[in-house]
Amino acid sequence: MAKAVHPDQRYLTALITNDTGVVNEIYKKCAGKVKSFIVFNNGTTSDAEDIFQEALVDIYNQAKYKNLQLTCPFEPFLLLVCKRKWLNELKKRSILPVTKNEDDLLHIGEDTFEQAELLEQQQEQSTLFLKAFEKLGERCKEIIRWSMQGDAQEKVAEALGVTYGYLRKKKSECMASLIKLVQVNK
């Protein structure tokens, strides 16, 4: 069974509902820490800004579209996500980080590590899925892209100038092709 959801799930809810007050609270608590970590590790304030925003958008997306359930406290989770993101960025720029990966993270619980790891995996996978999607035919791409925009598939069919039945059939086929593409690449 899945682990119990942490009360800090409220932060994810706040992200999804765009609760500015709570999002501000998140910034107040964490922005400074992320900034000092990144600036200390060969980054700039602007890098920190990008990383922080990316992390929040990732968490928002996972919570909204993939029903991410937080099983650890939010703050260390967010900080860890930002750190991992920055360390990956440093790898890309081939700069050695000043702080070792684990040294300053010893006090962080295992749950937090797992959750951050999972978030990263999910993000990586979704990038792979997007690449596979790009390989589909134009018609498939169009149908999938449109159907992803809103939940009312009838309206999507109308916008595409097809029947709802045709949309369902075509989308199923396109998605099946996509899944096969993903599995071939595995």
């Binding site: 990038t127 999607f133 809103g150 899944i179």
Partner: peptide, 19 residues
Amino acid sequence: HIHQSLKMQLANDANDERF
């Protein structure tokens, strides 16, 4: 999993913009 991951990348609805 794939559907939602892709939706995450493609959707970008009004709420996402607001956020």
